[in-house]
Amino acid sequence: MTASTSPDDAQSLVDYLLRLGDTTLVLSHRLSEWVGAAPTLEEEIALANVALDLLGQAQPLLARAGEVEGLGRDADGLAYLRDAWDYRNLLLVEQPNGDFAHTMLRQFLFDSYAVELWSRLATSTDATLAGIAGKAVKESAYHVGHSGEWVIRLGDGTTESARRTRDAVADLWEFTGELFATDAVDEAIAASGVAPLASELEPAWRDRVDAVFADAGLEVPTRQWMQSGGKQGRHTEHLGHVLAEMQFLPRAYPGSTW
């Protein structure tokens, strides 16, 4: 629990919680788009499990954000009534599903980050966040196993699957820098012991990615330019469409209980 929360501290905490909550929500939503279209029945169930786990993280994160913000917004209010420029998710997770290789690579890149993040958040000075982390760390450990295995199978599968996986790497790598970029919010959060500085997570993330890429026969790109802006509310063209679909009903029928 934070000892004393100045308005600035509170705002940083809200921003941080929205970043994590929006990220897990948007990624869950993307995965849920696979329902009915997965390559096997078993994979239908697996993908839905990951989507549900992420949703189960998003809801309390957004609820906590609303609580700290103190403006009477609950998780649904935050999820369904903010426009894209107020969303704070990582750009990586709003990227379209593409084919199964894209989806699994996107998932693996995120899971490798999440597993490090949640284990550090288990000792957050924010008790709610620590509680969420306690459950999420087990979930993301399972997720990274599942997505990592698929990246290997697809990278080291057939000529076609290898090509698709390489394409996925080429498309998604430029979104990985944002995972570890830090700004004033991140610094304030780290200073108050709520969360680790994101940059600290990079070495462990990189080790895992190197190992899986090696088994998958994939080259880690050396290209340096990275996309950014998601955490500050500047998104790619994709998020608007995601939200238009997701938010349609509450916006078409304002003031309704569902």
């Binding site: 009915g36 949703l55 679909e245």
Partner: peptide, 21 residues
């Protein structure tokens, strides 16, 4: 699923369809 109007309904619907699989 992608238009479920609350987070709870979203989770319940995903879980239901998952059960069907």
């Amino acid at each position: 699923i992608t238009r479920a109007p609350s987070l709870r309904r979203k989770a319940v619907l995903i879980a239901k369809v998952q059960d069907e699989a």
